[in-house]
Design a binder for these strands. Sequence first.
DNA 1: AGTGCGACCCGAACGC
DNA 2: TGCGTTCGGGTCGCAC
Length: 266
Amino acid sequence: METVRQTLRKRILRKKIKNVNVLYDRIVESDLEEFKKNLIGLEFTDILRKGKWLIFEIGDYYLCSHLRMEGKYFIKDDTEEIAKHEHIIFTFEDGTDLRYHDTRKFGRMNLVLKDKLDTVEGVRKQGIEPIDPSLSKEYLYENFKSRKLPMKTLLLDQTIISGLGNIYADEVLFAAGINPVKLGTEISMDECDRIVESSNSIIKEAIKCGGTTIRSYTSSLGVTGRFQQNLMVHKRENEECKVCGTIIKRIVVGGRSTYYCEKCQK
DNA sequence: AGTGCGACCCGAACGC
DNA sequence: TGCGTTCGGGTCGCAC
C-alpha cells in the first residue's frame, strides 16, 4: 500500500477532476450522489496512508480508499476503452483518468469532510504501524496477554498492529521465531520485543523493494514489487526452510493460509 | 465480551 | 481448448 501511495503521489496531484464515473455503486460507502458531485472541480493535494487505507486529500475532504484483496489503481488516457473490472473512474482535465480496478469488488471508498475522518470506522480503529517508533514490546504484551487467539490471528488484527497482511504476518512470525498457533496468552515480553524488531525490519525492507507481488499479472500502476524474493515461508509449502532445511508446512489458522517452519518457530 | 465462521465477489488453479 | 470444485493479498457482521 505504501508503494501504491508513493507511486500515485507522483502522478495525480494537482490535476483538476473533470468527471467522476461510478460503474459499480457498492464500492462507495459514503453518499453516492455526493461522491459523484463533490469531487468535480477539485484537485488531489496529497495522499496519506493509515495501515492499508489510502487517504487522498482533496479540497475540504479526505477520500478514504481500501483496496482489500485485489483493488488496483491505473492511470490511463481517457480515450481508452473501459476495461472489465474498472469500477470507479476519475477523469482529469489533462485527458487522463485515474481508474479503480477491482476483480472481486471487495474494495471500499469513503468520501468524508476532513474533520469527520474518524467516522470511517476502519480508519479510526487502526493500531500502531510497524514503522512507527512508538510500537513497543510493552504495548504488544498488553494487547496480546489476555487474548486466547493464535498469534497469526492477532498479527492480522489491524487494531493492534496496523498494516500487516497475510504474507507479512507469516514472515514476521518466522523472523521472530514464534509458532503461528501459539496463543496470545502464552506470549512473553521477549517474544513481543522480537515482533517489534521483525515487523519493523520486514516492512522497511518490503517498502524498499516496492512491495510484494505474488500473482503474476500487472499490479497497481504496472508497478511490480520485489519483496517476494525475500519471502522465507509464505507460499513455500513443501519447500526447504532457508535457515534449517526443514520442510515448510501450510496450515489454516483462523481461516487463513499459514506457512511456517516447525523447527524454527516454537 | 470474546471468539468462530460465513458472507461479500470473481477468476485462476486444481482435480478428475 | 472440458467441467465442477476449491481457494484467496481482507474485513465485517452475526451467532454462540
